[in-house]
Design a binder for these strands. Structure first.
Length: 281
DNA sequence: GTTTAACCCTGCACGC
DNA sequence: TGCGTGCAGGGTTAAA
């Protein structure tokens, strides 16, 4: 599942590859679930006509959302969901299964949206209306883009009484962290997933604050994570290299890289959580 | 205020 | 071998 690091890698690559390109043709393909991807639009034409002829002027990221700003005062908003992928390729390249949307540039090939599980979505909105998109409105602090102040961070933890894993994954608090990186951040900070936020000492909070930045920056450096069952691929179809540095995620039964205790897995709100019972307290 | 469960869909593992 | 069934997976949201 693409989380903040993967989405940021894609954003940076899009900035290099598609800014300045003009969309010659936009096609919502006739796949079984293509309409699910553009579910906010009433029909294909409504989506396609907003894009044709526009030039991409800049790329933004808000949490796990990618925003392609267009020179026609519209913005193309993309959320990759669980299995969404943006692929830059030549127009002549074979079309992969589950390719739902294709943007054809006047120069520079195509940008394709592929999504087997169709949890992702794309929509076009007037730039002036982006502030009214409720999913974007509710997003909390983006730890890379906005300064996550020590005061806000520690006060929020102290004022809530919720389990740490849930809080880290709460997009209204900090946006961009999902299941993989919440496990890795909590391991690095030495904090269990089920610790309640108001039980953290000031040194716990300090370690956690550092771990958020360190893990996310490292994951971006290695171009994200493509874990065993993850289908994440970058803009060029390559897997992320951070998988080899994972300390706990999907390492159930394997020795902890720090203390050799077998990594455990538990269920939290129907999600798998991986942790070291020795290093995390 | 917080937690839980259901929903969305596909691919894979497993059993017959 | 082939088919059918059940479940995992994450974000969101409604319900508890």
């Amino acid at each position: 599942m693409p989380e903040l690091p993967e989405v940021e890698v894609i954003r940076r690559d899009l900035e290099k590859e598609v800014v300045g390109r003009k969309i010659r043709k936009a096609e919502v393909r006739s796949t079984k679930n293509a309409m699910r991807i553009i579910r906010r639009h009433k029909n294909r034409k409504d989506f396609e006509s907003a894009l044709v002829g526009a030039k991409i002027s800049s790329i933004d990221r808000l949490g796990k959302y990618i925003l392609l700003h267009l020179d026609n005062q519209m913005a193309l908003v993309i959320h990759l969901g669980m299995s969404g992928q943006l692929l830059q390729c030549k127009a002549s390249a074979a079309v992969e299964n589950h390719t739902h949307v294709v943007l054809d540039f006047t120069v520079g090939g195509q940008l394709r949206y592929i999504d087997p599980r169709t949890f992702g979505e794309m929509f076009v909105s007037p730039k002036g209306d982006l502030g009214e998109v409720k999913e974007l409105q509710k997003l909390g602090i983006d730890p890379l883009e906005q300064p996550l102040t020590w005061q806000y961070f520690s006060e929020t933890l102290a004022n809530k009484k919720t389990k740490m894993k849930g809080l880290l994954m709460d997009q209204k608090f900090i946006c961009g962290i999902g299941n993989i990186y919440s496990d890795e951040i909590l391991f690095l900070a030495g904090i269990r997933h089920d610790r309640e936020s108001d039980s953290l000492s000031s040194s716990d909070v300090r370690r956690l604050y550092r771990a958020i930045h360190e893990i996310l920056q490292d994951a971006i450096k290695y171009r994200g994570t493509s874990a065993d069952d993850e289908q994440y691929r970058d803009l060029y179809g390559a897997v992320g290299e951070y998988s080899q540095f994972l300390k706990v995620y999907q390492r159930e039964g394997q020795p902890c890289r720090r203390c050799r205790t077998p990594v455990e897995r538990s269920r939290w709100s129907n999600r798998s959580t991986f942790y070291c019972p020795q290093c995390q307290v």
